[in-house]
Amino acid sequence: MIKLQLPLTEADVRQLKVGDEVALSGIMVTGRDEAHTWLINDKPDNVRKLLEGSVIYHCGPVVSKTDGEWKFVAAGPTTSIREEPIQADVVKEYKLRGVIGKGGMGPKTLAGLKEFGAVYLHAIGGAATLLAKSVKKVTDVIKLEEFGVPEAMWILEVEDFPAVVTMDSHGNSLHTKIKADSDKIAKELIGN
């Protein structure tokens, strides 16, 4: 288990390899489809400082609010591939050092991670209560009214958030390898 303190430097992420298990602490931000589109179309400046060196987490949480304070009740990753068209652009534009989600991403993102120096971290899909417990504090939320709870950008202070590196900054993807192997077996089973 490699402990990582956010924000990250390029050197931090360049040493990470596919298969490494990591635990993240510090400030991270959630973002899904609406957030990614907004980041690219509107280029908001108020989030630049926040995102630089941090990671964006593909997550639409279940939240509760008591005494004016937001709490993450359930917060597992959502499917990342939906952001494939613009993820690499978001990473470069906002100097992100990582993306957290599930299911992995495609060649455009993999190339972007290599070029800029960032990694794709796979969180445990469905393990929402476990992951919510690593969120120590919700420090702020952006675009809540407009985007709704799942799509808003939640700013989180996390401690030992667990994930696995499945796409590194050297062009390696675990997803590509698993797919190539299973394609071969599927072909044999289908037998054409």
Binding site: P61, V62, A74, G76, T129
Partner: peptide, 9 residues
């Protein structure tokens, strides 16, 4: 904790 197993309910 009686909390959702997954946030996508």
């Amino acid at each position: 904790d009686s909390t959702p197993i997954c946030q996508d309910t």
